[in-house]
Design a protein around this nucleic acid. Structure first.
Lengths: 107, 107
DNA sequence: TTTTAACATCGTAATATTGCAATATTACAA
DNA sequence: TTGTAATATTGCAATATTACGATGTTAAAA
């Protein structure tokens, strides 16, 4: 018990859930918001900005990154994280189409 | 440790995360999809349809319900669950405005 | 009244997530 | 080289989530 039974759902359903999971933590929402607000590249100002430890921020960044939402490149020892806009739009479209398909009412 | 530090984020950020959390499990995505596909009112066909125990489905329904996404009423011993369309649209709008505000690129 | 069907709730086991300190790792600076 | 700043990874403690059996609760059926 305790494990999500992913195999009983369609790929489409699982995909929506996986996308949502990225946004399901305020730290990750904050990170995305902050990154998109910066003109230039940002690094771990996120640690100061958000107020979680460096380890924790790095962990959240990897969750966001694994979802394909980040482009990161090193500039010397600093790392620049940027939004992968294409993927981000893809997420928006997928979520929206879920909303649209799911908006008929039964009662 | 282990607790999400909600107090360090703005209400807006927490709200997005809370909304996303509802969709962050495939069972809940399935339930919403299934409910919206039914013409009339549905009950716990969800148990047969999805293949989780009645207790588990009921639990997920209460998560969805607590988010304000369900209208439920009893018809005899059966309970009819319907989408609260207004709230659902609200979710869609909130998520979308997050996407829009967050779509500028830094690199 | 008793039974039964349709849910809800409780208790609990299994697993996942969150967060941080400590410890790598990496690349520049001295 | 050695030191150091920036980030990643590891290990672990605390808490949350997921799932289900067992047990309520309630309303119709028998």
């Amino acid at each position: 018990m305790g494990v999500t039974k992913r195999f009983i759902y369609t790929d489409g359903i699982n995909e929506i859930a996986n996308i949502a999971k990225v946004f399901a933590h305020p730290a990750r929402v904050s990170i995305l918001k902050y990154i998109s607000e910066q003109e230039g590249c940002i690094c771990n100002d996120l640690v100061d900005e958000i107020g979680l430890s460096q380890a924790t921020i790095s962990q959240h960044l990897s969750v966001i990154g694994n979802a394909g939402l980040l482009k990161g490149r090193f500039e010397g020892k600093k790392k620049c994280y940027c939004l992968n806009l294409e993927r981000f739009k893809e997420f928006q479209i997928l979520l929206n189409s879920f909303f649209i398909k799911t908006s008929s009412n039964c009662c």
